[in-house]
Amino acid sequence: MAILLVPGFWLGAWAWDDVAEELRRRGDDVRALTLPGLDPADPRRLEVTLRQQAEAIVEAASEPTVLVSHSGAAAPAYLATDLAPHRFSHAIYVDAAPLPNGFVLIPQLPAASRELPLADWPELEAAGNSLLGLDEAALRRFRERAVSEPASIATAPLELSDSPARLDIPTTIICNSFSAALVRQLRDEGSEPLFAELTRLRADYVDLPTGHWPMWSRPVELAELIHTIAAH
């Protein structure tokens, strides 16, 4: 089974290195993807659209593929399952969820800003992005390798089709900074737009308690979960 790993905001394929290594040790066919707009060598990266990111995911996916997305990558990943549902046998969201039509990840940036840089650590945590489990080496690597997120991605509304095919893809939410019980509660209450789409999907919920970047804080356990889910 092919597994495609897609990192969230500010990250390239390198963010999955430890998890990818663990998956390959278990015999999985793994590829990690740097999304368009997150390659610092691309002079036009700030012009990239969510649809272009989704199309890159579709292009990278052999059939069938287990699609694993982290954090902000949930938007292009879910759009990819909308564009080509037949390519994906399972969708796994890591500390993230499939997003509803029209959802905007960052509703507003400063006027004329074309990109969203990685914030200071206290600001990140204040926004709900837990750094639990990250040591100084991980934080330093994150800071050194982070690429600012294009505003064209961060502030773009997700545009999904009316096709129900994506809703039939088996889905698993790996819950890190939010527990599975809390995600289910927020889903059922309807109080959190981030989880609204989960009412329409066949989703399972798995706990892996840690911070928002489990690929660094608990890579072995995350790889084992992904491997087990992909095998079923």
Rank of each mutant, 00 (worst) to 15 (best):
1 M>S: 13
4 L>W: 08
5 L>W: 04
6 V>T: 10
6 V>R: 07
14 W>T: 02
14 W>N: 01
15 A>Q: 01
20 A>I: 09
20 A>L: 10
20 A>V: 13
22 E>F: 12
25 R>T: 10
26 R>E: 12
27 G>M: 04
32 A>C: 01
33 L>S: 00
34 T>Y: 01
34 T>G: 01
37 G>F: 00
38 L>V: 01
39 D>S: 05
43 P>R: 02
44 R>Y: 13
49 T>N: 05
57 I>Q: 08
59 E>W: 13
60 A>H: 05
62 S>F: 10
63 E>A: 13
65 T>K: 06
67 L>V: 06
67 L>Y: 04
69 S>A: 14
70 H>M: 03
70 H>P: 00
73 A>F: 02
77 A>P: 03
79 L>S: 03
80 A>I: 04
80 A>R: 02
81 T>S: 01
87 R>Y: 05
87 R>H: 13
94 V>F: 02
96 A>L: 06
98 P>H: 07
100 P>I: 00
101 N>F: 11
105 L>H: 15
105 L>Y: 15
107 P>F: 06
112 A>H: 12
121 W>Y: 15
123 E>D: 14
123 E>F: 08
123 E>A: 11
123 E>S: 15
126 A>L: 09
128 G>V: 09
131 L>D: 06
135 D>H: 00
137 A>I: 04
138 A>H: 11
140 R>G: 12
141 R>I: 11
143 R>V: 06
145 R>A: 14
147 V>F: 11
150 P>D: 02
152 S>A: 14
152 S>M: 03
159 E>S: 12
162 D>K: 14
163 S>F: 01
164 P>A: 05
166 R>E: 07
167 L>A: 12
168 D>K: 15
174 I>L: 15
175 C>M: 07
178 F>I: 08
178 F>A: 10
182 L>H: 11
186 L>D: 10
186 L>T: 10
189 E>I: 04
192 E>H: 10
193 P>T: 11
195 F>D: 12
198 L>G: 05
198 L>A: 10
199 T>Q: 15
201 L>S: 09
202 R>C: 12
204 D>W: 10
205 Y>V: 08
205 Y>P: 05
209 P>V: 08
209 P>Q: 06
212 H>Y: 01
213 W>G: 12
213 W>T: 14
214 P>K: 02
217 S>G: 13
219 P>D: 08
219 P>R: 06
219 P>S: 09
221 E>H: 08
224 E>H: 12
224 E>W: 12
227 H>V: 09
229 I>L: 13
231 A>C: 14
232 H>V: 09
232 H>W: 14
